[in-house]
């Protein structure tokens, strides 16, 4: 065991006074009813400068293709391991569009140059949404690695209302992370990359995506 560790812990343990922890609080994270929840989610995302497109299970792939063509984005990163990735691929192959889909199917070491210098946009799914803050919950894994939602200048994410939660605390409970442990990396993304470091002037696309586009599939009304 390191000497530094011993010394630090010994000093901390020698302290005579421990802070009092008797501080009452009734704070509860915000909750919304079903209709409000989606409104709050969309409102927060728009305020953070994300683009949202409301679509359906049947039409989202077409919408995605439309985004690609209208923005003239031809080099796309996608996942061949997800249902939506495959659907995007089928859509692209169904008609001549000039779009190339590249899978993230190799380690970053051999893919870095292409990822940094050629890929213009990426398409991923999201695990869940958080209404309170207009947040996408992204859990990178082997199918959709960490850099997929970071390096490409445009990121399009597919979100389903059925996964929408009220707040961050609900996510932690739902995923049971406290007992199960967390995935290697878990991300809350709430808009495109931005900075106000120059004279408090907002600029988008500081280091991450310049544009974040969220395809929203609302629940079917019953």
């Amino acid at each position: 065991m390191s000497i530094a560790k011993d010394n630090i812990l010994q000093r901390l343990r020698a302290a005579k006074h421990k802070p009092s922890t008797e501080i009452p609080s009734n704070w509860q994270p915000p909750r919304f009813d079903k209709k409000e929840r989606l409104l709050q989610f969309k409102k927060s995302l728009i305020m953070a400068h994300a683009d949202i497109i409301e679509t359906t299970e049947d039409t989202w792939a077409q919408e995605l293709l439309k985004i690609a063509t209208s923005k003239r984005l031809t080099q796309w990163l996608y996942s061949p391991d997800t249902v939506s990735g495959l659907a995007f691929n089928r859509m692209v192959e169904s008609q001549p569009s000039g779009i190339t889909l590249t899978p993230y199917n190799q380690p970053i070491e051999t893919f870095k140059s292409q990822l940094f210098h050629e890929i213009e946009a990426s398409f991923t799914e999201v695990k869940a949404g958080i209404a309170d803050t207009g947040t996408l919950v992204i859990i990178p894994d082997k199918s959709e690695p960490r850099l997929m939602s970071l390096v490409p200048p445009v990121h399009v994410a597919l979100f389903r209302e059925s996964t929408l939660l009220n707040n961050f605390s609900e996510l932690i409970e739902q995923e049971n992370w406290a007992t199960k442990g967390l995935p290697s990396n878990a991300l809350l993304v709430s808009g495109p990359s931005k900075t106000a470091d120059i004279q408090q002037t907002l600029a988008y696309g500081a280091h991450g995506p310049k544009e974040l586009i969220v395809l929203i599939i609302a629940d079917i009304k019953t």
Partner: peptide
């Protein structure tokens, strides 16, 4: 800090790259 309800990114790191992962 900045009057944001949340920052653009909240990054939770719990492990280095695992064997089947492609980056990190």
């Amino acid at each position: 800090a900045t009057g944001q309800n949340i920052s653009t990114y909240f990054n939770m790191i719990s492990s280095p790259r695992k064997t089947d992962e492609k980056d990190g």
